[in-house]
């Protein structure tokens, strides 16, 4: 789990999971932020979303490194 993920015998780096989870989180966060009206204060929405995604994927990756056994 920390380094790799076993998908029915196919072992892939856990980074794949963090990438997917971060994508879902970004979509959810974007929806929540849009409802809260934050995007009025955002310059380029797509750039902001992409930056958010990178932050989340890196964050998840490093948090998992410290916490997931």
């Amino acid at each position: 789990m920390r380094y790799e993920l076993d998908l029915f015998g196919v072992i892939v780096p856990s980074f794949l999971l963090w990438g997917v989870v971060a994508y879902i989180l970004t979509r959810v966060a974007a929806r929540v932020l849009a409802r809260a009206g934050l995007y009025r204060h955002v310059w380029h929405g797509a750039l902001f979303n992409f930056a958010l995604y990178v932050c989340l994927v890196a964050g998840l990756s490093f948090i998992s490194r410290e916490l997931v056994s």
Binding site: F15, H41, V42, F48, V54, C55, S61, F62
Partner: peptide
């Protein structure tokens, strides 16, 4: 304000991306 907020988030993303790249 719009430019600075976006720029801030992008800068954080660049730093986080660099750390991620370095790690892998």
């Amino acid at each position: 304000r719009r430019v600075s907020l976006t720029t801030l988030v992008v800068l954080v993303a660049v730093w986080a991306g660099y750390k991620l790249w370095d790690y892998y």
